[in-house]
Simulated scan of single mutants.
Amino acid sequence: MESAVHSFFVSIPQAAALWLVILLAIAVAAVYVALPRSAPPQPLTPAQRDKLRFADEVAVAADRAAATCERLRAEWSAAQEQVDAAWLAFAEADRRARETTRAAAFPLISKRRKPGENADRQRYLHHAAIAACRNREISIAQLNDVLAHRGWNPRLHPVVQEGLLRQAIREHRLSQYEDAQKREQVAWHEAELAAEALRSLRAEATAAVVRAGTAEEPAGDEWFADQWATGEIPAAKAYA
């Protein structure tokens, strides 16, 4: 009798633990069953597929516009650097021309020219002009004027010719600076147009993605009018 009672009390903890495990399993199953089930994905309608396709096309166009915008911004930056370089070149040419102008304030000693001196002066002018053109200090048109003696007197003293040549260099540098400014303005305008086009395409791409993710909405007032019968509108009876 004592052995049976002892066995009964020993088996009570084991039975309690078994029931706790069973209750816990039941509770987990109940929670799992109570969890909301996600609805299976609905197939896309033809209208939604068209919207997604359009959104992809706009996104591709926006990527291309971004590449174009970046390229034009780089060209504008290069044009700005060219403007700065042209200005420095003009400033240097202007400084040298001013130095020559100040030096020309002192009169040259007039003396009788030696035989062949005019030919030497002409040869000096031609060589100096060709060297300046080779260094891109004067243009081809200016060089042609020098060689054809259009506006140039080859019999002048080399100091005077040097001063006139430096003035021609200053004029050419100024023309290069003005041309660089025009190119920079054109590059800036094109970069701004590309940036505006990029902003518009990105906004359109965002709107297209939003439209593609929403249900198709009825368009126009006619759809709403078709959904209501005249008898269902109280105001229609009052004004009939």
Rank of each mutant, 00 (worst) to 15 (best):
S200L: 11
P107F: 09
F106E: 08
R211V: 06
A16L: 10
R123E: 10
A55L: 05
Y32V: 12
G231T: 14
C133Y: 04
E162C: 01
R98P: 00
L201H: 05
K51R: 15
Q80D: 12
E192I: 13
R113I: 00
I22V: 12
Y32N: 13
L52D: 05
I109D: 06
R183K: 15
A205L: 05
I12D: 01
P40K: 09
A225T: 09
A236Y: 14
A219C: 08
I138H: 07
P43M: 06
G116T: 08
A132H: 05
A180V: 11
V209G: 02
F106K: 13
R199G: 00
Y124L: 01
P218W: 11
R121E: 07
V210E: 10
R112Y: 00
G116N: 14
E117F: 04
S3W: 01
K237P: 02
P154E: 06
I12M: 12
A129H: 04
L24V: 14
A191M: 11
L201P: 02
P41Y: 04
V209K: 14
Y239G: 04
A229R: 12
V60Q: 08
L52I: 05
V83D: 09
E192V: 14
F9M: 01
A194N: 02
Q82C: 00
V159Q: 08
A197H: 08
A29I: 08
V5L: 15
R155F: 01
E222P: 02
R112N: 00
R134D: 13
K182S: 05
A168W: 04
N135Q: 15
S77A: 12
Y124E: 06
T45M: 03
Q80V: 10
V21L: 09
L164T: 03
Q181T: 06
A180P: 10
A219P: 03
K51I: 05
W188N: 06
R73F: 14
A59I: 06
P218V: 07
M1T: 06
N144I: 07
E184V: 00
N118Q: 08
Q122R: 15
Q142K: 08
T214L: 13
L44K: 13
L20Y: 02
R202S: 02
R150T: 02
K182I: 01
P234T: 07
L88N: 00
L201C: 02
I22N: 08
R113H: 07
D56T: 07
A208E: 04
S175N: 11
A59N: 07
H189F: 08
A168L: 14
R53P: 03
S200R: 06
P107K: 05
A47Y: 09
E190R: 13
A131D: 13
R95K: 13
P158I: 01
R211W: 11
N118L: 05
R113P: 02
F90C: 09
S3Y: 03
K51P: 00
G220P: 01
N144E: 14
A103P: 02
L35A: 10
G163Q: 10
A119C: 07
A128N: 08
L193F: 10
Q80C: 11
E216D: 15
Y32L: 15
P40V: 07
S7E: 12
A212G: 08
A240G: 15
P158N: 11
Q161I: 02
A17R: 09
C69Y: 15
Q161A: 11
E137D: 09
P36C: 10
K237G: 14
A212N: 11
A236D: 13
V5M: 12
L156G: 00
Q176I: 04
R113V: 07
A93F: 02
I138M: 06
A129C: 08
R134L: 09
A203I: 01
